[in-house]
């Protein structure tokens, strides 16, 4: 009961903050005499944006597909390479330092190259999303699979269990919390990658839309596009967070108790 009250109190405060924020935005436009082509009022963003709704929804689908496809590919590759590197000392001495050094380069800098290699279609965007998502996933997976406690390692060795059995019963579940740190970070990166890829070269998608309407001096529509992008990003991140709650409920409850 106390928890519920706390939730309502903090929830209301957040809602109140947002209402206040948008009210301030709405009324500061006439108050400070801000021109519409610089910053439109929220009400104008809604009314102008809803006229373009069909396009915005379609483009959200386009960008969403790039984001989700890229993210899933990065997830599979990142987890696969992460596990392989954790279990192979040869890969740990070759691929791992290679990945760490690539992590230092801003991956988005490759975007123009990919566009020039693969054209304006879906593929270069997906590749760029994979690129920005892969590294946080693989590096966190390596960290995760290498941080099993000494005691647990000795314990499973003393049982004589097979590598496969210990993997599924101990190593994998023990690694999941740290893996999810990477998954979540990558989920935030994913929409960023897709948007920038569309800025550079595309004929559809929210990134394309935002760059076109901004060029046409329509910040109201740009904000509408940003709103849809935010929704997309939130859904991807929300889905990953939900998966974390489903797959490792024990980890969430542990954090709660430790607080």
């Amino acid at each position: 009961m106390k928890k519920f009250i706390n939730w309502v109190v903090s929830g209301w405060m957040l809602i109140l903050f947002f209402v206040g924020f948008f009210l301030f935005w709405e009324y500061s436009i006439p108050l400070f005499d801000i021109p519409r082509y610089i910053l439109p009022a929220p009400s104008e963003i809604v009314s102008k944006g809803s006229a373009d709704l069909d396009k915005l929804i379609y483009y959200t689908g386009v960008t969403g597909l790039e984001t989700v496809l890229g993210y899933i590919i990065a997830l599979v590759l990142g987890l696969g390479f992460g596990i392989a590197i954790s279990f192979s000392s040869i890969l740990r001495r070759t691929l791992y330092p290679f990945f760490v050094s690539i992590e230092m380069t801003p991956k988005i800098a490759f975007a123009p190259l990919f566009i020039s290699w693969f054209g304006f279609g879906l593929m270069p965007k997906v590749i760029i999303v994979v690129l920005v998502c892969f590294f946080p996933i693989v590096l966190n997976a390596i960290l995760a699979f290498n941080s099993l406690s000494n005691e647990l390692t000795l314990f499973y060795k003393s049982t004589g269990a097979s590598t496969l059995k210990t993997f599924f019963k101990i190593r994998l579940p023990a690694a999941l919390p740290q893996c999810f740190v990477g998954f979540k970070y990558a989920a935030i990166n994913a929409t960023v990658g897709a948007t920038i890829a569309e800025f550079i070269g595309s004929d559809k998608g929210l990134g394309f839309y935002i760059s076109i309407v901004t060029g046409n001096m329509r910040p109201d529509l740009a904000f509408a596009g940003i709103f849809f992008l935010t929704c997309l990003g939130l859904s991807v991140f929300g889905f990953v967070t939900m998966m974390e709650k489903i797959l490792i409920p024990w980890h969430i409850s542990m954090k709660r108790i430790n607080k």
Partner: peptide, 18 residues
């Protein structure tokens, strides 16, 4: 190699949180 007909216990226990 590792002996398997043993029971082993440490200062930091081997209970898994899940």
């Amino acid at each position: 190699g590792p002996k398997t007909d043993i029971g082993i216990m440490f200062q930091d226990n081997t209970l898994v949180p899940w």
